[in-house]
Every structure is written in structure tokens, then in C-alpha cells.
Computed example of a mutant assay.
Amino acid sequence: MAPFQTNQATMSQDMVTRVGSAAGRVAKIQQDYATQAESETAADAREALASRARAAAEQVIDEQGISIDDYNAVLTAAEGDPDLEQRLLDAAREVL
């Protein structure tokens, strides 16, 4: 399988929408679990929450039909591409 291309010119709007949607939902998961972790004092409980948050985030990404590597590659590409970053933010806002 060929490596995923993160070039703006080759990235489909469908991929941007999928990653943006997943990113919005992952941000919400992180926020929810961070709130829960603040009330926990035991390290084991915090670790369990972090593990559940990771699993929930992975599931959200998988539900969008993309791999975690592709998800991360698109987010990394967006760090150097303001237009791509804005497209991802727009897609993320639609699910929040």
C-alpha cells in the first residue's frame, strides 16, 4: 500500500472532513476525560482514565474510516499549512 500523501494538492475534501470530524470528537473526549481526571487523586485511576480516553479516541478515528497514522499525518501537515488547518477546524466545528 502506498504511503498516504499529505500534500494539499492531493488531499481530498473527504479526507479533510474525516480527519476534521475525528479531531473535533477527539478534542471533546480529551476535554471530558481531563475533567474527570482532575477529580481523581490516585495515580492508578488517572492512568485508567487516560487509557480509556486513548481507546475512545482510537475508536472515533477508526469510525471515520482512517488510520491513526493518516490522522496524525494530516494533523502534522496542517501545522505548516494555514489553509488546511482552517479546513480541518471547519470540519471539526460541524461535529461539535
Rank of each mutant, 00 (worst) to 15 (best):
P3Q: 11
F4H: 06
F4L: 08
F4R: 01
F4V: 12
Q5L: 08
N7Y: 04
Q8K: 12
Q8E: 10
A9I: 13
T10Q: 12
T10V: 09
T10G: 03
M11G: 02
S12Y: 07
S12R: 11
Q13N: 14
Q13E: 12
D14K: 12
M15C: 03
M15L: 11
V16L: 06
V16C: 03
V16K: 13
T17F: 11
R18C: 05
V19W: 02
S21D: 05
S21Q: 13
A22K: 03
A22W: 09
R25D: 07
V26K: 00
V26L: 05
V26Q: 02
K28V: 04
I29K: 06
I29P: 00
Q31D: 13
Y33L: 10
Q36D: 13
E38T: 09
E38Q: 15
S39T: 13
E40A: 15
T41Y: 07
A42S: 14
A43S: 12
A45W: 03
A45M: 10
A48D: 10
A48V: 12
L49A: 07
A50W: 01
A50S: 14
S51T: 15
R52G: 03
A53Q: 10
A56Y: 01
A57W: 01
E58W: 02
E58I: 04
Q59F: 04
Q59K: 15
E63W: 02
Q64W: 02
I66S: 01
I66H: 01
S67M: 03
I68V: 15
D70Q: 14
Y71W: 07
Y71E: 07
N72H: 09
N72D: 10
A73F: 02
L75W: 08
T76I: 06
T76F: 08
A77N: 04
A78F: 04
D81S: 09
D81P: 00
P82I: 05
P82C: 11
D83Y: 10
D83Q: 14
L84T: 03
E85V: 02
Q86N: 11
Q86K: 15
Q86P: 00
Q86L: 13
Q86T: 13
R87H: 07
A91S: 11
A91G: 04
A91Q: 03
A91H: 06
A92E: 00
R93T: 05
V95A: 07
L96V: 08
L96R: 12
